[in-house]
């Protein structure tokens, strides 16, 4: 039924020689995703220290995050209010768009000793899911490499306070780490590009 209806509207569009008035196609992945860039940077490459880069995130990571913002499962300020404005199909479209954007390497000040310590911890604790030093998003695991240290710290605080829920596999590892080890991991991921 839905298919039929959209075919009809396409036929009308063709008939109107794309006059651009009333007959327009539904929002494309670009139409939906460009609107996010005011806060997340062009094509999802963030220049703002507290805002994550969306570029090269896996489709499921984007969809999962948006659904959790929408339901309130993941705590947020504006993201919950915005996510309520979109359908699951919109989230899929955004996921498709951002997963195709090039990884955004950042240059930031990190503590070299902490980053080095983090490298060892990462290998033993995180690398099974956050593959390729966090540069590759697997399933709904987000790309961690090159995210701004401020953003990573804000998320770690949300996890530590219990406001943001961790997957069980992650909680098993994370909760065993000291405060210093956790910080070392964040410096490691921030330094990866």
């Amino acid at each position: 039924m839905k298919m039929k209806k959209s075919l009809v509207s396409w036929a009308l569009v063709a008939g109107c020689t794309f006059s651009g008035a009333a007959m327009a196609a539904p929002p494309t992945p670009e139409m939906l995703s460009y609107a996010c860039a005011g806060c997340h940077g062009t094509n999802g490459s963030s220049a703002g220290l507290s805002m994550p880069s969306l570029a090269s995130q896996s489709k499921s990571a984007i969809v999962d995050a948006m659904k959790k913002f929408k339901s309130g499962d993941r705590p947020s300020t504006v993201m919950g209010r915005l996510a309520k404005g979109y359908s699951d199909a919109d989230f899929d479209a955004m996921g498709n768009f951002y997963s195709k954007q090039k990884f955004h390497p950042t240059t930031q000040m990190v503590d070299a000793a902490k980053a080095k310590k983090g490298a060892d911890l990462e290998d033993a604790n995180c690398s099974r899911c956050h593959i390729d030093q966090g540069k590759d998003g697997k399933d709904d695991t987000p790309v961690m490499a090159s995210q701004w240290l401020d953003y990573l710290k804000m998320q770690a605080e949300l996890y530590d306070s219990g406001k943001r829920k961790m997957p069980k596999d992650m909680a098993d590892k994370w909760n065993k780490l000291s405060k210093e080890d956790r910080e070392a991991l964040l410096h490691f991921y921030a330094s990866q590009k």
Binding site: G20, M23, A24, A25, P27, M31, A35, G38
Partner: peptide, 18 residues
């Protein structure tokens, strides 16, 4: 997006804004 569509004779796209 819609200016480029119109200049290329392609269908325009419904707006989605923030």
């Amino acid at each position: 997006q819609n200016v480029v569509a119109l200049m290329n004779g392609k269908p325009t796209t419904d707006m989605s804004g923030i």
